[in-house]
Write a protein that binds this DNA or RNA. Structure first.
Lengths: 139, 139, 139
DNA sequence: GGCGTTCTAGAATATTCGTAG
DNA sequence: GCTACGAATATTCTAGAACGC
């Protein structure tokens, strides 16, 4: 029931993957997942890279300097890693059912998984087919 | 249903942002929000700045000396912060639906949110479309 | 019952106030509180300052760029503001009973106040005089 | 009662670290 | 080795509360 907070992670990620000037984050061939080139990502968005090099191309998007923290965010928002066809090349492939190129409307469902939300979600998924909605739920 | 008190915060803010001699407060590109340069604001309007420096350029508008108090005022009047494109440079971007360059008529709706007013407003926003006022509402 | 995490706020603060090269954070005359010069702090530790100026003198201590966030940390760790003799000059005075120049041993008691801890603390403080310090308390 | 100022706290997201699986 | 998650701290934005006028 939430709208999209333009300052939070999902909106940032959406802008990055759709930005022509960002080359380290792209859609996969089907537009159903993210392809991330780690070394390039670190230079372009985390401001790492070889010392004595210029500033990051798109700074200020994340405050972190570690790729692992970025991955933590992906997991917190429900993304899962997909095995890449060519492993070991600094290429990462992540997916979420609510992050698709042709479905910007689903973006609002990408919500941070707190402990409570996670429990609720797990409960729903394990329910027998009886009643997906709690009794007396509105609408 | 109120008119604009020329001594209160909204009117002061309106005069500042439209004053050619004030450089720390400006309209954003669309005229829908405020851009505030904090260091300049502190010198120009709060009279801070390096000691041994001249007097503030536009003194007497606020009694406070802290930028935080100014931000408190903005929030009390319903402004919300917007992520600036380049964070971390002392640049702040605030918006309110009732503060627009081409709509001075809306200024009268910028009212201080007391606890009572805030509660009333929240109630209205959550009401189903049935009846804006609960039956038997007072007044 | 915890020891001091050298990466967390209290240890950082201790190092800053005792560092000869940091000039924006000092002990007050009695060594019982902190004196903080905001403008200098922002240049020296937050990396703000006039654009086109050199890098911060002691960067990397905090990730934030806002003095308000630093104050939030102080409050989270139980510091309280003390009225300065000379208000309005960007000088802040903060105290905590567990932050004293001659009592580094107390530093371990400076703990982050979560909601639970805060409630427990308030309950203890409202206890009748029966047993303020539990007799036979450990250590 | 309203408004301005100050200090502190609530709540949500972000970041880091450790570790279970 | 690797992925995902829990938990603690850090950061941000906004609100509560108290006080004076």
């Amino acid at each position: 029931p939430g709208s999209v907070n333009p300052d939070a992670f999902p909106a940032k990620l959406w802008r990055l993957v759709n930005s022509p000037s960002v080359t380290s984050v792209r859609w996969d061939a089907r537009g159903e997942g993210l392809l991330i080139l780690q070394p390039r990502f670190e230079r372009e968005l985390l401001g790492l890279g070889p010392p004595g090099q210029g500033p990051p191309a798109a700074p200020g998007v994340f405050r972190t300097r570690s790729f692992a923290s970025f991955v933590r965010q992906l997991n917190l928002y429900g993304f899962h890693k997909v095995l890449p066809a060519q492993p070991g090349e600094g290429l990462h492939h992540f997916q979420s059912p609510y992050f698709r190129r042709d479905r910007p409307d689903l973006l609002a469902r990408l919500q941070r998984l707190t402990k409570a939300k996670r429990a609720k979600l797990a409960a729903v998924l394990e329910l027998p087919a009886r009643s997906q909605r709690p009794l007396g739920s509105p609408h």
